[in-house]
Design a binder for these strands. Structure first.
Length: 433
RNA sequence: UCGGCGGUAGCUCAGUGGUAGAGCGAUCGGCUGUUAACCGAUUGGUCGUAGGUUCGAAUCCUACCCGCCGAGCCA
């Protein structure tokens, strides 16, 4: 038997006879001709079987195939302007490997709940195919970006002794009735230890938030990338974020043209993003812009989702909001020397209503100040002893940020809900499959 | 937790007090270089659950369950 060709590579084999290992996504047939819609994971192609060009058994096999039937297909690759990919397959041989057996997801419209109840097979369809291939490309690009810049990938633990920020709810894990652990809501504190050991590190792992959020922007379990860099200040931190997001946008525009087209994604904003040059707004300027838009806010308020949408829509690429009131941010953030009511932190807000995709800051490196902040926030000093200890031995300014992978992907792909960018999303109302 | 909307055939929905419907899917047949094909036939139901009002309830009332969207929280 000849070697197997993947559908993605068919344009390089025009005129040749190839073998595919594929599944049937749909078909049409008559007494004279049959059309088979085929997929193999790498792409999609149509198989054509004129009745007078194949033997009777092959033709009848083709007509009897049901949706999601697994098949071996032999055929000749032919250019055809009517085909979306430019090529189709003139089938000469066909073997049924396994029938589709009343496949549940029919070619007509379905509701969200039905599709995610059948997510284990929904993954076979074009929309998840395009989205999850972009997810894969972005994940690889993240590793490439940091590898090219000399970062060490540094894995933080998932079981934690306590909360990093003390405010959000954590999932509790019972340790055999003898102790309690919590699922990680951030690897940042550990990444700080890594930065002081290796200079430049990043974590890439799952994050768990026990919040009863039921919106398109929230999952119980999502993936976060948290770089942490020693000797890096607030301004350098924002530049790193800008370079990072611009790089990722560029990689997707270059490497996922077919997927973006399938998703009908307008790439105007992504093209602007890939150029960098992200605008920066101070918190005060953002506050003024929101007031001008009719929002009732006073200095010191944090911004909600509708506010982020307004701010994001002011620009054609992501915007930094910096200079936040100290009271709105986490205990470990470095205050400005000349104004301790503000911290050296920035949020990066995506345009098009996708909200905050990155939160970052310069971290406190002064021992006494950090100890004071931990006390002010009523945090358990024993649990943070090792974190404080980092400030005792060669402490230097350092900065980092956390990027929500799914938030970025939802924005890149233009999907409405985070659940679409994860193979098996975990939400309050979705634990199956 | 709060607010809005919803739950009727495998799927998407119509039906708002008087015999439970359509399209799609599936099955069978016809037809076609088709692209969500098309034409005909067949198939298809604890109307979310429990109780109540009524001669009669998918429809009105009460409680509960589940889902969707949003808020808060955040990435």
């Amino acid at each position: 038997m000849s070697s197997v060709t993947r559908i993605h590579d068919l344009p390089q084999h025009v005129g040749e006879s190839v073998t595919l290992e594929a599944w049937l996504t749909g078909s049409r047939s008559s007494g004279k001709i049959a059309f088979l819609q085929l997929r193999d994971g790498s792409g999609f192609v149509q198989g054509v079987l004129p009745a007078d060009a194949v033997d009777e058994d092959t033709f009848q096999t083709a007509r009897a195939l049901d949706q999601e039937a697994a098949v071996h297909v032999v055929g000749t690759v032919a250019e055809d302007v009517r085909a979306p990919s430019g090529v189709e397959l003139h089938v000469t041989g066909l073997t049924l490997v396994a029938a589709g057996n009343e496949y549940p997801i029919t070619p007509k419209e379905h509701g969200v709940d039905f599709l995610f109840e059948h997510r284990h097979v929904h993954l076979r369809h074009k929309r998840p195919w395009a989205i999850l291939r972009i997810r894969d490309l972005v994940e690889r690009s993240i590793h490439d970006f940091f590898a090219e810049r000399g970062f060490l990938r540094f894995d933080a633990p998932f079981f934690m002794p306590t909360a990093v920020e003390g405010t959000t709810n954590l999932f509790e894990i019972d340790l055999f009735g003898e102790d309690t652990a919590y699922l990680s809501q951030s690897g940042q504190l550990y990444a700080e230890a890594g930065a002081l050991a290796f200079g430049k590190v990043y974590t890439f792992g799952p994050t768990f938030r026990a919040e009863k959020s039921k919106t398109r922007r929230h999952l119980l379990e999502f993936w976060m990338i948290e770089p942490e860099v020693a000797w890096l200040d607030h301004a350098g931190n924002m530049q790193l974020q800008e370079d990072f997001v611009a790089y990722l946008a560029g990689r997707v525009l270059e490497g996922a043209k077919e997927e973006l087209a399938l998703l009908e994604r307008d790439t105007t904003v992504l093209e602007a993003t890939a150029q960098g040059g992200f605008p920066r707004m101070t918190y005060d300027a953002a506050l003024d812009a929101l007031k001008a838009a009719g929002e009732e806010l006073t200095w010191g308020d944090d911004f909600g989702a509708p506010h982020e949408t307004i701010l994001g829509d002011l620009h054609d690429r992501p915007v930094f909001i910096e200079g936040w009131p100290t009271q709105t941010k986490a205990f470990y953030m470095e205050p400005y020397e000349d104004d301790p009511t503000r911290v050296k932190a920035a949020d990066l807000i995506a345009p098009e209503g996708y909200g905050e995709i990155i939160g970052g800051s310069q971290r406190i490196h002064d021992l006494a100040l950090l100890e004071r902040r931990i006390a002010e926030h009523d945090l358990p000093s024993e649990a943070f002893a090792w974190y404080v200890d980092l400030r005792r031995h060669g402490s230097v300014p350092h900065s980092g940020f956390g990027m929500g992978l799914e938030r970025l992907l939802a924005w890149f792909t233009g999907v409405n809900h985070l659940r679409e960018v994860v193979p098996f999303p975990r939400m309050l109302t979705r634990m199956y499959p």
